[in-house]
Design a protein around this nucleic acid. Structure first.
Length: 548
RNA sequence: GGUCUGUUGGUGAAGUGGUUAACACGCCCCCCUCUCAAGGUGGUAUUCACGGGUUCAAGCCCCGUACAGACUACCA
């Protein structure tokens, strides 16, 4: 029996590969257009690493006038999670990553669900068998495990290759007999590689990668008739006309396998771009951000904290291209999409996930947003995570917008919130609904004031402060009064003769601020007092004095 | 054990053989202003994991060591 006859015997009703080769036409795109894909497996919700990959894939496809498609790699039913695919699509799309074609959306290069492509894979396995480049393997898990422990003991390379590949040279007749006897089997690649031969592959991100030829007879078709990742990758990316494979760098070590597969199948090899992982410092150990161990790996975590989607995108861009941050700082009014990403500006090693950096980016982002936009998005956020505060916001829409507008229309806008939840955390005292329900709002005030100081404060609020004063008037009155009660109104005077003063004007202002806001940090004091109004100030003053 | 990759300040990093090792975050000092924040000035790496080598010249090239990461499944 020849290889060709054996292939026919194994796959009697399968189409010839020429059918598929002709079915999927060359894509009609401009020169240098990048065709790439996001290819998740439906094993749960998306995490930062996935999002990063999808985001970069999108950027490269868009900026080159190419195509981005979604392929679902559902060849492992054991690990599958219910609704896994839908939640991934929703998550990714919420970041503005919209696919040109793919699962659910359709397209001319489908199906885009690997489990719908079984027939295609079979055709190519049949082709390889007919060429003598693939064979059925009857080894049991026990046999493989056994070989493995022998290999470990002898300190030999682990795997199914060379003399360990016992089914590789099984005569066709013997194999056929086993199949007729209903023995279970899988298909393996009959590797033609020589482990001692080295080659160099140029990775778009990592540069030149030196690797030995693959000599492992890897599994290509599993006993459930589904392909392994390696095989599906080669077939799919070939038929879908992918030009660039953008994926995590956990795949670099499989590169020799993929390169051999493409070569033996007679396919053009795509350009690979292996993305460095997002890292985390755990105690003193640096490791890959783990979906299972690290809450901050999940995208949802940032939603919950209240980071805007745009901020996450800015952060990923910063991580993505080392020159992005500089560009963005120089062009604050441009959109991320205006930046041209390049592979050679991507990190080769891993990137530490830096929360304080994220916060900083976010503060700057909030500082340039319009109050009405912040209000709108914050409301969406609180409706999901804090309904009570969402109601308060809705009942105080104009008031909140005014609050968010403080020190906004100036050259250097304030930077005091980095998340939507900060609005509550930083400004809760502005809402009587919250202030009045707390038994001691001044619980966290460390500094205590004596009766002299309280009298001064009291006199100021009751007799000096006038709601109708403009800011200039407000401050000159404040200064005049402060001086009267022995607060230094300029730094030099105080430094020269601290003994002559009760403190500096800043101390006086701090006392007012603490009384009004319970905090030592707040937006412009004048504006805060204006917004609250005289009556509330007097009310708070009484509470403050009692609780001191 | 094997294969591949990486290692620049507190952090993220620029840097691909040639003056004082960019920039950003953080931290500290000071300044400014009518308070806080913001902002501004300056300081934060005698040196690029370590040891050799090549070169007139090395963070950048070569070799070795250490450490770290990825992979080494009928998982992706």
């Amino acid at each position: 029996m020849t290889n060709k006859e054996f292939a026919e015997y194994l796959f009697p009703d399968v189409k010839d590969i020429s059918y598929y080769e002709n079915l999927y036409k060359k894509r009609d795109l401009i020169d240098k257009a990048i065709v790439t894909r996001y290819a998740p497996s439906p094993t749960g919700s998306i995490h930062m690493g996935n999002l990063f990959q999808a985001f970069m894939a999108k950027q490269f496809a868009r900026q080159s006038g190419g195509v981005l498609f979604l392929r679902v790699e559902d060849t492992d039913h054991k690990r599958e999670v219910e609704n896994g695919i839908d939640s991934i699509i929703t998550d990714v799309e919420s970041f503005g990553i919209i696919f040109d074609e793919g699962y659910k959306k359709g397209g001319e290069y489908g199906p885009y669900l690997q489990s719908d492509r079984k027939e295609i894979y079979k055709s190519y396995v049949k082709y390889l068998v007919s060429k003598g480049l693939a064979y059925p393997c009857f080894c049991t898990t026990d046999e493989i495990n056994n070989n493995r422990s022998i290999q470990e003991d002898n300190k030999e390379r682990i795997g199914y290759y060379g003399k360990w590949a016992t089914c590789r040279n099984l005569p066709i007749e013997v194999a056929k007999k086993k199949i007729d006897d209903k023995m279970s089997y899988i298909f393996r690649l009959k590797s033609q590689g020589d482990f001692n031969k080295k080659h160099i592959y140029y990775d778009a991100i990592k540069g030149n990668l030196e690797y030995p030829e693959n000599d492992m007879d890897i599994v290509i078709l599993k006993s459930d008739n589904l392909p392994t990742y390696h095989f599906a990758h080669a077939i799919d990316d070939h038929l879908m006309k992918t030009t660039h494979v953008i994926r995590g760098d956990e795949w670099v070590s499989s590169l020799p396998i993929h390169l051999e597969l493409f070569t033996l199948l007679g396919f053009d090899i795509p350009q690979y771009a292996h993305l460095a992982p997002l890292l985390k410092k755990d105690k003193d150990i640096v490791r890959k951000l783990s979906k299972r161990k690290d809450p901050e790996a999940s995208v949802k975590y940032y939603h919950q904290l209240g980071f805007p989607i745009e901020v996450i995108k800015l952060y990923l861009s910063t991580v993505g291209n080392t020159n992005f941050e500089e560009w963005y700082l120089a062009n604050p009014n441009k959109k991320i999409e205006d930046f041209t990403f390049s592979f050679d500006k991507m990190a080769v090693g891993g990137t530490m996930f830096d929360l304080s950096k994220l916060e900083n980016i976010s503060k700057t982002y909030f500082s340039i947003q319009k109050p009405s936009d912040i209000f709108k998005d914050a409301l969406i956020y609180f409706k999901e995570y804090d309904k009570e505060f969402a109601n308060i916001l809705e009942n105080n829409e104009d008031y909140t917008k005014k609050l968010l507008n403080i020190e906004k229309e100036v050259e250097r806008p304030r930077k005091d919130i980095s998340t939507y939840s900060d609005i509550k955390l930083e400004f809760w005292y502005m809402y009587d609904e919250l202030f009045d329900t707390i038994s001691n709002p001044y619980d966290n005030v460390i500094k205590k004031y004596n009766s002299d100081e309280l009298n001064i404060l009291s006199a100021y609020i009751n007799n000096i402060y006038l709601e109708t004063d403009n800011e200039e008037m407000w401050f000159s009155k404040l200064k005049e009064y402060a001086l009267q009660v022995k607060y230094a109104v300029n730094r030099k005077d105080y430094k020269e003769h601290p003994e002559n003063y009760r403190g500096q004007i800043s101390d006086f202002c701090e006392m007012i601020r603490v009384m009004v806001t319970t905090k030592t940090i707040s937006p412009n004091l004048y504006d805060i007092m204006q917004l609250l109004g005289s009556d509330k100030l007097k009310k708070r003053l009484k509470i403050f004095i009692v609780l001191q």
